[in-house]
Design a protein around this nucleic acid. Structure first.
Lengths: 342, 342
DNA sequence: CTGAAAGCGCTAACAC
DNA sequence: GTGTTAGCGCTTTCAG
């Protein structure tokens, strides 16, 4: 292990004190120009880098923020990350990222690590398991310790912090109304995320739209796919037992699977059945037929979350913490080939 | 800014010395059991966390590794990240990630930051611009400073470090031979990544396969799409001017675009034209027809890279650095509907 | 069993 | 202009 260049070694080399070197490197007017030049030259040539721990110990600030995401292979979260990273960089923050894999314990571990002082603050999108367990004490603890916290997309009311969310209920409401305005009344729903806050809100929105249009909610039309369920079987049961002329899928991969099953069963899309899917990615625009989708703006949400966090960190530093803000980001319905105005 | 609990404050509370507290918390036999218990209880209740900088200053080890990726919205790189993160965690490392956006300067900045002591070592997949510029001094410098470095996928011979790569030439060679064995002889190629090491190797492999089968390489069949070029126009020119019965696309999005253009022009796939695409993601298996693809194993590559890095860091620590290793990961051709044995 | 003290690398107030 | 010194929070050696 080669030992690193420190102020001390440089000082020895020039036979002056450490302080002189420190000042020379900072271009302090205390030091003669000549000396400054030679010291800076030497430091540069030998690749002097100030020790980051020593700096941190002094400043007590990491200039790093954390990010806990349930999954990074999902393009939506990749987009969120991308937005966070961009703004973090603009503010001079590095990003440490942890993947919870929708696992409660991994989320707790990551949070504890962050609270350790590894980061100044962090952004989190809750793990599915955490939302099932409804145990949020790790986050409450983080806030108590004056670590900045922002939640994004999968959030909870139980923790008092800034949040960036999609108006999921509204998005599902709009999609459902879109069907209704096209004379579709027998609207089924497919969800593989009924456990998440997001999934629940979307189902709420769907039901509300039906109710507001005097259509009875039929719980049998709500297909909740669990980890061990086979979507094809469930779909066949529903399609075989009642009339369905529209299908709202709450999440991208389920949309793709549903589409493939419908095609296999020789349903005509959109003639027999219309399809709208929530999406994170680009899949829905490339399949045949291209699927009308409710699209979220992941990058923008990540940016917004990081802006919140940067602002919060400033507040914490200046000791004037304000109340929590929530930003609701709108979704957009992109009309494609899987729906048609009758 | 609430001030944090330190050994000092705890010591004051118990009216003992800092050293006593430090030892008590570490369960040293120096300290009476009674005292240990009460100190630990107090620390836990008040959420004592050792200051990470002070620890770092002592140990001079960050337990963090860096990762520089050209882009995270590309599922391939997301997979690489995912593999790195997994193994990093297993070894007790955190991951700081920077996105270069294929930009040389961003890559240099990230590298310099890492060399600053932010991380013990880092993994990088080169930015496209860096490969064009062929300027790798930032990495050479990193190695000189005893920071561990592993390159993955987009690498260069100019830097002497561990590498994890795909045998890109071989993969393209195999794909081309696959066409030839199916009686396709007029094989065109579409590349939007001709500037990257990866793109060049794939073109080499393609040419080699043609040569080994006594097929003349026709440079006009190699469609190199630049940033400002329109793929559709270029494709039409080639398809209009010569016979083409197979198309090898070097990258996923180009594959999708090519497929859509071919469909628009009423080519029958695979009857008139066979199609094979390199892929990072899942797109190719969901389009119609499903596209035969050369798939890479991103997660595995990330895992391998992190294993290399962990090993290298251990070597550096123990001062017995060995020579550099390169791991070549095989690709797989997944046969789907866009190719057919004649 | 407990404490004093040195030192990790750096900054900054103050002295010379 | 330059140097001395204290201190950031912690570990560790050594003395008592």
């Amino acid at each position: 292990m080669k030992k690193k260049l420190t102020l001390k070694t440089i000082a020895k080399h020039f036979n002056v004190s450490i302080a002189t070197i420190s000042k020379a490197l900072k271009n302090s007017y205390d030091i003669s120009e000549e000396r400054r030049k030679e010291v800076q030259k030497f430091a540069k040539e030998n690749g002097y880098k100030p020790n980051i721990f020593a700096l941190g110990l002094k400043r007590n600030k990491t200039n790093t923020i954390g990010l806990i995401l349930p999954n990074i292979l999902n393009l939506y979260f990749a987009k969120v990350f991308s937005g966070v990273e961009k703004i973090a960089n603009e503010h001079g923050y590095n990003v440490v990222i942890c993947i919870s894999n929708d696992n409660y314990q991994k989320e707790v571990d990551a949070t504890n690590m962050f609270v350790n002082g590894t980061v100044d603050g962090f952004i989190v999108s809750l793990a599915e398991e955490t939302q099932k367990l409804q145990n949020y004490s790790h986050f409450k603890n983080a806030i108590k310790q004056d670590v900045g916290l922002v939640m994004i997309d999968r959030v909870t009311d139980e923790v008092n912090c800034d949040k960036v969310i999609v108006n999921d209920a509204k998005a599902a409401y709009d999609a459902t109304e879109y069907f209704i305005s096209n004379q579709r009344k027998n609207i089924a729903l497919v969800s593989i995320i009924s456990h998440t806050s997001v999934g629940k809100l979307r189902i709420q929105g769907y039901k509300k739209a039906l109710e507001n249009n005097n259509i009875l909610v039929d719980e049998n039309l709500i297909i909740r796919v669990g980890k061990n369920d086979d979507l094809e079987t469930l779909l066949k049961v529903v399609l075989g037992s009642r009339k369905v002329d529209a299908l709202l899928c709450l999440e991208e991969t389920a949309t793709i699977s549903t589409l493939e099953i419908l095609k296999k069963l020789h349903y005509k899309i959109p003639e027999n059945i219309s399809l709208i899917g929530f999406t994170n990615g680009e899949l829905l625009q490339h399949v045949t037929p291209k699927v009308t989708s409710v699209s979220q703006h992941g990058v923008f949400m990540g940016e917004q979350a990081m802006r919140f966090l940067a602002a919060k960190l400033k507040e914490i530093e200046e000791d004037k913490v304000s109340s929590s803000k929530t930003k609701i980001v709108k979704t957009t319905i992109l009309e494609r080939e899987s729906t048609i105005k009758l």
